[in-house]
């Protein structure tokens, strides 16, 4: 492997990380919105969300990426590979994040909400001041776990023509006829990316522990 090959793997890593981050930045709050729709039992919406989550959790990211990339232009919405990858990653991760948020919301003690109403808080204010500060800490490990799963399913976006870490490694292997070195380098890169997320989670927990005395 030449220096150029290492560089193209690093480029692939930048693609994997940036597309995953965009998916996370949109998918985590979107998951919360979906979970809130179910939690507050908004009539038709709650059932639609339940159906969405059930289907999306069963859909492989490869199949979803192909569907988004090929079917959207077919119904008159032209889409490039990068937006198609972001849309499919976000649709996928939002479904899983919805379930994580929902579990935290379902476990939330009703008595606290009653207390908030009793002191005259509106539902919105009670959510901002009482519910959210508690549920995000409970959901953090689950959300970070889902982020690492997202990184591991991200090579699926190669089917719409995006060169991520895995795709870059395959290309180098095909050119040099020595697939093992690029694959091992790719493995090391994924390890570092996943480690980065887990470390970030730990440092947030340590920070919370210092500030509030609990994580």
């Amino acid at each position: 492997m030449t220096a150029y090959d290492y560089l193209s793997l690093l480029q692939g890593a930048a693609v994997t990380v940036s597309l995953s981050l965009v998916g996370i930045i949109i998918g985590v709050p979107l998951g919360l919105v979906l979970a809130l729709a179910r939690w507050s039992e908004v009539p038709a919406l709650a059932r639609a969300v339940a159906a969405y989550v059930s289907v999306l959790r069963a859909t492989p990211l490869v199949t979803l990426a192909l569907l988004v990339f090929f079917a959207l232009p077919n119904v008159g919405v032209p889409i490039d590979p990068v937006p198609a990858a972001i849309v499919s990653i976000t649709m996928n991760t939002a479904a899983f994040n919805c379930e994580i948020w929902r579990a935290a919301l379902n476990d939330f003690p009703r008595t606290q909400l009653d207390a908030a109403t009793a002191v005259g808080m509106t539902p919105g204010l009670a959510f901002r001041r009482i519910v959210f500060p508690q549920i995000w800490r409970i959901s953090l490990p689950g959300l970070v776990n889902e982020m690492t799963l997202l990184i591991k399913s991200s090579p699926a976006i190669a089917v719409v023509g995006i060169v991520d870490i895995t795709r870059a490694a395959v290309r180098i292997g095909a050119q040099t006829y020595e697939p093992l070195p690029p694959f091992l380098t790719a493995t090391a890169l994924y390890f570092l990316v996943v480690l980065g997320f887990v470390r970030a989670q730990r440092s947030i927990e340590v920070h919370l522990d210092r500030k509030f005395g609990f994580a």
């Binding site: 990184i151 591991k152 399913s153 991200s154 090579p155 699926a156 190669a158 870490i165 895995t166 490694a169 395959v170 292997g173 697939p179 093992l180 694959f183 790719a186 493995t187 994924y190 390890f191 996943v194």
Partner: peptide, 11 residues
């Protein structure tokens, strides 16, 4: 647990 399934399939 660190690598994507597709990478293992390629290996």
């Amino acid at each position: 647990r660190c690598i994507p399934f597709l990478l293992l399939a390629y290996i």
